[in-house]
Amino acid sequence: MATIKLINIGFGNIVNANRIISIVSPESAPIKRIIQDARERCMLIDATYGRRTRAVIITDSDHVILSAVQPETVAQRLVHHKDDESDE
C-alpha cells in the first residue's frame, strides 16, 4: 500500500505529492487553454487566495490546481519530500 505524501502549495493548502504529473508556469497559451478547459469541466482548484497564479499543478486525476507559489518552490518542496522518503 502506497503512503500518502503531502506537500504545501502555499497558504496552508496541501496536495498529494504522489498524484502530481507536472508543475508548470501559467504564461503560455497552451497552459491557459488547459486552465480554461479544467474550469469548464469543474476540475479546476484555485488555491491562490486571490493572488496572482504563479504555478499550475496538473494531477493524474485530471485536476488542475492553481497556486500563488513559484513552480520552482513547489518543485523544491516535492524534491525535498522525495529525499526525505529515501532516507527512511
Rank of each mutant, 00 (worst) to 15 (best):
A68E: 06
A17G: 00
V15G: 03
R77C: 06
P71I: 04
C42A: 15
S86Q: 13
I45R: 11
I14K: 10
A68N: 04
R19D: 15
P71C: 06
G10D: 01
R41M: 08
I45N: 09
V69M: 09
R54G: 01
I7P: 03
R19S: 14
H81G: 12
E72F: 07
Q76V: 11
T53Q: 02
I14D: 07
E72S: 12
H63P: 05
S25L: 06
G50P: 10
R77Q: 03
A68D: 07
V15K: 00
I23P: 07
V24C: 02
H80I: 00
D87C: 08
I57P: 04
I23V: 15
S22C: 04
T3P: 07
D87G: 08
T3S: 13
N8K: 04
R33W: 05
Y49P: 00
V24Y: 01
I45H: 09
H80R: 09
G12K: 08
I21R: 07
I58S: 00
A29F: 14
V79K: 15
T59V: 05
S25Y: 06
K32L: 04
I21A: 09
V15W: 02
H80G: 09
V79S: 13
R77N: 07
P26M: 10
D83P: 05
A17V: 04
I20L: 06
N13L: 06
I35A: 10
S25P: 04
K82T: 13
A17S: 10
D60P: 01
D83W: 15
D83K: 15
H80F: 08
M1Y: 10
V56I: 11
S86V: 14
L6P: 02
I7E: 02
H63I: 02
V56H: 07
S28H: 11
S67K: 05
R19C: 10
K32R: 13
S67L: 06
V64R: 07
E72N: 09
G50H: 10
G10V: 05
Y49T: 12
I20G: 02
D37K: 14
V15A: 02
R41G: 00
D46T: 04
V15D: 05
S25R: 10
R51C: 11
H81C: 15
L66P: 03
R19A: 14
T53W: 08
P26R: 05
L6E: 11
G10M: 00
E88Y: 12
E88L: 12
F11D: 13
T59S: 08
K5P: 02
K32Q: 13
I14Y: 11
I35L: 12
G12M: 08
S61M: 13
D84V: 15
A75I: 03
M1C: 10
Q76M: 13
T73Y: 07
L44P: 03
S22N: 09
I7S: 02
I65P: 05
G12W: 05
G10R: 05
R33F: 07
K5A: 12
M43D: 10
T73M: 06
I21Y: 07
R77G: 07
L78E: 01
D37R: 14
